[in-house]
Design a protein around this nucleic acid. Structure first.
Lengths: 255, 255
DNA sequence: AAAATAGTGTCTATGAGACACTATAGT
DNA sequence: ACTATAGTGTCTCATAGACACTATTTT
């Protein structure tokens, strides 16, 4: 059952020395990063306008090809840093899109990631990078799933490149699913936030209103929040206390 | 902002005709399929013994390289059919593993899938394919995550190839997570099953005992079960009624 | 009859939703 | 004083766990 060559077994070292990678056809592998935030009750995504073929002029999530000497996670972090100017934020693998005709140039397998960041930081990064923040709309409720649509601030639909409607829809679906059991809301908020801010983030992501009393009890009982003792200022009503997330959401280690 | 060549804009058609895929380095892309079942209170995985370098003699989940003209889903279904003789069973993308050194031959990005099948069918398929069914053990509880280990029927640990301990661990984690909200137990059972069978599957996957009364109520109230009116035979106690899953779990459509 | 599990009914504990009430800021 | 929201306490309802009891088969 072992490989033989001239009547004797070859060792793994000999095999690897003689191995020719061109024996199997290779594919282009890209990472696409869906950078999401919540602002003013809307889910927003960072999009860049394509300046080259294919799909010139259409809008795309930042992406780039994976180099032979970098891991997928590193490639995604590199794309996030170079194309969006963002560093050290929540970043997690989402899904891999590999339909044959998804890129008209050649066969490209895209490993999609999603990143979460607070609205103020993303607004600054988008401006510096020359990107736009588009509102995300999905035509489905709950955890049904399906493509998503991006609109500019005037409500006009932005044409998306490649299969990015599906990529964006998958990111929304993942976010909704995670919010039910994971503290995924915190990366979307600044370090200090009120319970009202947190509830608005949850409601925006889930696309439905939540019960205030129940949400408050559940969050305080979860042990994920630490009260700061500080309160809001200059609000025309009783100021709410600021909280912080008790444990920073750990970045998953490279596989 | 558009590409120019000799002072005029090029159309997308012209661009694609002149596009050279070799401009970017390409990678090998493989699919690995984790085929799982539950039998005798144990989670089992189908493994094949590697007959070629690298990792000759070690055990691996069935895998294969993705051809340029097939989608990832199709490649996974092909591997499942050719290497395990299984067709038309639950198959879903799991996670993509892309660490640089995970394959000693060359850079290989592995898109892992997991498949679920009932124990009797998998036992027959494994025998026909010359594969083994190994018991899966994880050293972690709940949804912690981490690598998994495979043991033969005598309890001896089978050495796994590549990063397959992580791949296997990721599959167990996904299965546990899905069981909480999705009817993922049904693909692991034959068409007709008792509530006891279903509970045993859930307990095995989750790695903990469940409350009988509560499980029964929850399942019957879920609307996912249809009573058949038939009952077990030749059991030394009151025979339980057979149920069927009311809706076959739809295979996700190709992206 | 004994043993073992299926299946039903009921009580209790827990958590979500609803509501009432008090607290605290700006206007 | 008025308004708007923060924060607390309590009631109700739905669901999970626990337990008791009956049903049905083989040995």
């Amino acid at each position: 059952m072992l490989c033989t060559e001239k009547g004797r077994e070859v060792t793994e070292t000999e095999f690897l020395a003689a191995y020719d990678p061109a024996e199997y056809e290779r594919l282009s592998v890209a990472v696409d990063v869906v950078v999401l935030t919540v602002d003013e009750g809307e889910l927003r995504v960072l999009l860049v306008r394509r300046t080259e073929h294919p799909h010139v002029g259409r809008w795309a999530v930042p992406g780039g090809f994976v180099a032979p000497d970098e891991s997928l996670d590193n490639a995604a972090a590199r794309v996030l840093a170079h194309k969006a100017g963002l560093d050290g934020i929540f970043l997690e693998q989402l899904y891999t899109f590999g339909a044959v005709g998804r890129d008209p140039r050649t066969r490209v397998v895209a490993v999609a990631y999603y990143a979460l960041v607070d609205a103020a930081r993303l607004a600054a990064a988008a401006q510096a990078a020359g990107a736009v923040l588009a509102t995300v709309r999905v035509a489905w409720a709950g955890e049904t799933g399906g493509p998503a649509e991006a609109r500019d601030p005037d409500g006009a639909v932005l044409p998306l490149a490649f299969d990015h409607p599906e990529v964006l829809g998958t990111a929304v679906l993942r976010l909704r699913g995670k919010l039910d059991y994971a503290p995924v809301g915190f990366p979307l908020l600044p370090e200090r936030f009120t319970l009202r801010d947190l509830q608005e983030v949850h409601e925006t992501v889930l696309g439905r209103r939540l019960n205030r009393d129940s949400f408050r009890r559940r969050m305080l009982a979860s042990g994920q929040l630490r009260a700061t003792g500080d309160h809001e200022r200059d609000v025309p009503y009783r100021p709410a206390e600021f909280y912080t997330a008790v444990a920073a959401l750990a970045r998953p280690a490279e596989q």
